[in-house]
Amino acid sequence: MKRHLLEAADLDRADATLVLDTAAQIDQALAGREVKKLPTLRGRTVVNLFYEDSTRTRISFELAAKRLSADVINFSAKGSSVSKGESLKDTALTLEAMGSDAIVVRHSASGAPHRLANWVRGSVVNAGDGTHEHPTQALLDAYTIRRRLGRLDGVRVAVVGDVLHSRVARSNVWLLTTLGAEVTLVAPPTLLPVGVGSWPVTVSYDLDAVLPKADVVMMLRVQLERMNASFFPSAREYSRRYGLDAVRMAALGDDAIVMHPGPMNRGMEIAADVADSVRSTIVEQVGNGVSVRMAVLYLLLGGNA
């Protein structure tokens, strides 16, 4: 493994498979245990540096680090010296001077983790940067698919919704194709990025045509906070054409699963009864996230002197 995890596009098949296998072994080792704690990263310090709001990713990273016995410091931009104007670089150098071994960073600017990786000596893990990437989300999605379907090679994945603003979609496109899956993006033309033609995917505007052939349907959140232009006429129309409801779900194959990275807009991109159905892996994804992030922290930090 490299020293940092900045983007899923960096991971080759061997590295990605190593992360998934390690996560599976950690899951197996901790299954059914009373004490879900390992001594591996004792004495190491992990800083969660979050410039954007997050529930599951921050808690998931915190839990992963704590289960490996690392010390965790949570930093959120709100209520810190950032509001006094301190730069990302100065903040990072300050944290490193206090002895952090790894920085898990979320930032609204695409590329912030890359800049950070040039400034600090420790490892940097990208926990979501702007509309660029969210590699650990893709890893936990891949892990969930592999657990449910038993394979990734040749699995047909439909990624549906706001691809334009979605770092989850980008990371999944790179990681899943690296691991041999076939990815189809389904979205209205206004919510697809300009360069999508050069991605290793097929593109469709018609959800109903894609669903019967999909093994996995990954619904993306409609990012209302980034909807600063008229990307679609109304929420209702979006939901009617690109939302997953019970009728559409019935068109799926017998073993197909429904995924969502969360947080969900129930009733918008996904109907409540779909989110709570047996096909849904949404809660499972959250649980798998901890194991996958433990694997990432172990592989990045475990061997560093």
Binding site: M1, L18, D21, T22, Q25, I26, A29, T40, Y298, L299, G302, G303, N304, A305
Partner: peptide, 10 residues
């Protein structure tokens, strides 16, 4: 681990 580096789990 710090001396010999990480390895795959079994």
């Amino acid at each position: 681990l710090r001396l010999r580096g990480v390895r795959a789990l079994e």
